[in-house]
Simulated scan of single mutants.
Amino acid sequence: MEKRCSMKYITFTLLLFSTLWCSAQDTTRMWLHIGTSVNSYNGDLEGKKKYTSSFHIGLQLNRKKRLNGNINIGAGTLNGEDRDFTFDSNQTPLPSPNKFFKTNFFYINYDLHYNIIKKRNLIVYISQGIGMIRFSPKDDEGNDLADLPETRAEEETYRQESLMLPTNLGVIYLLPNQYGVSLQAGYYNTLTDYLDNISTLGDSADNDNALAIRFAFFVPLQ
């Protein structure tokens, strides 16, 4: 009889602990996320597709059912090459535009996430953000292209900072302890045409852009 009572007490204690544990995990209000991205540049020197990487860290809020904020900080590289790149110019002497570039970049942005699906272990979302990106295109010898005016049209200069409006679609899978992993795909949507140092001499009227496919780990903080 005493053994049976002990077993009932242990069972009740375990059930109570499980209930409290689950309730605590359901109230997670913030995650730290750390991950990497595979990037693909789109612009005047796109040529053959090249893939680069970046690293990011951020804070994802989880206070609302549908709309939550997200802060991202990241850094990485983009590059492109088109050895058949041609241009039209009446300038004398003719400019010598670069046909290769490698850009190191750093960015910080804020996203607003809309949860299409939100369950205890699964979140599917779309997001729209706004932020700043700093970039530094270089040629194949490591020279800063912004400092080489002969690679652009006459008197063409640019800033190496730009606004960006990143758009993403993603999914977050959460374990019972609220640790998780995520996969996200989207575009940086920069508001500059100079990630590759080419603008006026290029054929494209659109800004340079980059596709990023991101994988991240989520760690609950609150």
Rank of each mutant, 00 (worst) to 15 (best):
P176L: 04
E150I: 11
D44R: 03
F100W: 13
S54D: 11
T11I: 09
D88W: 02
L78H: 08
Y158H: 12
Q160M: 09
Y51L: 12
L15G: 02
N39F: 04
E141V: 04
T13G: 00
I34L: 15
N121E: 03
L163Y: 12
C22W: 03
D147V: 02
Q178D: 04
C5P: 00
D144A: 10
Q184R: 11
L20P: 04
H113C: 07
S23E: 13
K64F: 15
I73W: 09
Q178R: 15
L122F: 11
D147H: 02
I108W: 05
Q60K: 14
T92M: 10
T77A: 06
R4C: 07
P176Q: 06
R66W: 15
T92F: 12
Q184Y: 02
L195Q: 02
Y107Q: 11
M1S: 12
T157L: 03
M7Q: 12
N42H: 15
D144Q: 08
R29H: 11
S54R: 10
S23R: 09
Y51S: 13
L14Y: 13
R214T: 12
L61S: 12
A210S: 14
L45P: 00
T190M: 09
R152P: 00
S204H: 00
N79V: 01
P220G: 07
A205Y: 01
Y188D: 00
T190E: 02
D139R: 01
L165V: 07
L122D: 00
G180L: 06
